[in-house]
Amino acid sequence: MFLSTQFRPVDEAERFRRLLASVAPGEVSYVTIEEGPFSSQIRSQVDAGSTQLGLVAGLHGDLAPLAGDYLTDVSELLRRLGERRWPPDYLELARTGTDRSWYVPWATASYVLAAHADALEHLPPGADADSLTYDQFLDWAIAARKANGNRPVLGLPAGPQGLLHRFTQGYLLPSFTGGQITTFRSAEAVTAWEYLRELWANCNRSSTTYGFMQEPLESGEVLMAWDHVVRLVEAPERDPDNWRMLPSPRGPHGLGYMAVVAGLAIPRGSTDPDLAERTIDVLCRPDTQVELLRSNGFFPAVDATIPDDLPPAITLEADAVRRQQEAEDSLLSLPPVGLGDREGEVTKVFQDTFRSIVLDGDPIRPTLDRQAGILQSILDELRVPCWAPDPPADRCEVA
C-alpha cells in the first residue's frame, strides 16, 4: 500500500494511478488521505509494531515530523540515485536538520505571476518582466488600471478557497523581512503590510471571491494575477502566444518564493522495503517525472529536460519556476511544518491579519501585536521548530 497526502481529488488520483501502473515494478495500491490522519496512521502502526504500509508520500511538512522514529533512513538509496541531481536545498530539507535523509524529494510546485499581453504593454519604463521588484509590480498595476479606464486588472486569490495566505507567508513577508514567523511583527513587516494595502487598492474588487485565478484570467475579468501553478494552467490554453508566466517580485531581502516539495518515504517496518525502493527509483526517473508534470502539474524534483510538447501553460510556468529557484537572491520559503491538523489555525492568523489590515483598515502595529500573540500561543503548545526561511531554532518564537 502506497499512502499519500497528494493528488486527493478523484481526477488527479486516477491520472496518477494510471501513471503508476505504467511504471511500477510490482503491485502497488495508491491510497490518498488527509494530512492529519496520515501522520496519526503512520505513528499508530509503527508504535504498535504492525506497519501495514509499504511506501508513503507527503509534503515536506507532512514527513519532517515523522523523521527518525517513524521513517527509514534513505541516505544510501539517495547515494545510489545520485546521478538524478536533486537541488541541494531539497536534499537539505530531506535531512530535516539531521545527518541522515528521511525521504527522497519527489516533485515540486510553486506560485508565479501570469500576465496577458494587454497588461504587459503597461510595464514601467525600464522594468524587466522576468526580474520585477515589488515597487515595479505596484507601478505596473497602477499603470494598467489607469490605462483600462481606472478599472483594476490585477487579481489576487483572496476568496474562501484562495491561497492568498501563501502569498503573505512565502512571498511578501520573506521578501520584505527575510522571515515568515520570527519577523511577523517586525518594523519591516509593518512596511510589507503597508505595501499590500496599496497593492490591494489596485486589485479587482472581486478578488475577495477568487479561488482559482485561471477562471477570471480566462474570462478577461483580470489580465494579471498571482497563484499556484496548478491554478493557472487553463488560462493560456486558447491563446498561448499572448500570455507570459513570470517569477514573483523581489523585495529588500531578495526574491522570496515558496516551494511545495513532496517526498517519498519508507515507514519503519515497511511491508516490502525492496519494492518501496524500486518504486521510488522509477518515480524519480526524469522521464517519469516529466509524465507527472504532464498529468498532474507537479514539476520534476530531479534534473529533467522539459519537452516542447507540454500544454502551453506548463511550458511557460516551467521557465518562471526555474527563474525563481535560480535567482541569485532567491529566498526559499516552506509551507508550515509539523503543525498537523492545527495548520488551519496558523493559516487563519494570516487570513485574519489580511482581513483586519487590508480589508478593514485597522491599524497595522496593534493588529500585528494581537495576531502575533495568537500565533505564538499555537507554536508554544505544539513546541515545533521554525521552518524556512526562518532559522531552524528548536523553539519557534515570534520576535
Rank of each mutant, 00 (worst) to 15 (best):
D139S: 13
L120Y: 07
V233T: 14
A192K: 02
P160V: 00
A141N: 01
K146Q: 14
A201Y: 01
D128K: 15
W200M: 12
E121C: 13
T133F: 08
R238Q: 15
D227P: 04
Y171A: 05
F176D: 07
I181E: 02
T208Q: 08
D239H: 15
P160Q: 05
S131Q: 14
E218D: 11
A225Y: 12
T177R: 03
L163V: 01
D135A: 13
V229R: 00
G211E: 02
R197N: 06
P152Q: 08
P236W: 03
L232V: 07
A192D: 06
P236M: 06
L138T: 08
R238V: 08
A192N: 05
L138H: 03
G170C: 08
E218T: 14
N204W: 05
G162Y: 04
I142L: 09
P174E: 13
L123V: 05
W226I: 13
C203V: 12
L217C: 02
W140N: 04
A127C: 11
D239G: 07
G149H: 05
W200S: 04
H228I: 02
M245G: 02
E234T: 14
M213C: 12
T133L: 11
L132F: 10
V153E: 11
L164Y: 10
E198P: 00
N204D: 09
G162H: 10
S207C: 12
A141W: 09
P124F: 10
L154T: 11
V222D: 06
I181A: 02
V230P: 05
A189E: 07
D241Q: 14
L120W: 08
L196E: 04
E194A: 10
I181W: 01
R231D: 09
P125C: 09
Q180C: 10
E215L: 11
P157F: 12
V222H: 03
A187F: 04
E194C: 07
I142R: 14
R231G: 06
Y195Q: 00
W243E: 02
W243G: 01
H122S: 13
G126W: 12
L120I: 12
S175R: 03
G155T: 09
Q161A: 11
D241H: 13
L232Y: 04
G149V: 04
L164G: 08
L199M: 11
V229P: 00
R205N: 08
E198A: 08
E234F: 12
K146L: 15
M245Q: 10
Q161Y: 06
T183E: 11
E194D: 08
E194Y: 05
L217P: 00
F167T: 00
L164N: 04
T183M: 06
P174Y: 01
T191C: 06
K146D: 11
N148T: 10
A141Y: 10
Q214G: 01
N150D: 13
H122L: 08
A192S: 12
D227N: 15
A189Q: 00
A129K: 15
T209Q: 14
V229A: 00
P152L: 09
F176E: 08
P125S: 15
F137N: 07
W200E: 00
L138R: 06
V233C: 03
N150Q: 12
P160F: 03
R205A: 14
P216C: 14
A187D: 15
A141K: 03
L154C: 07
D128I: 15
A144N: 11
Q180N: 07
D227H: 14
L164P: 00
C203S: 15
P124S: 13
L154Y: 06
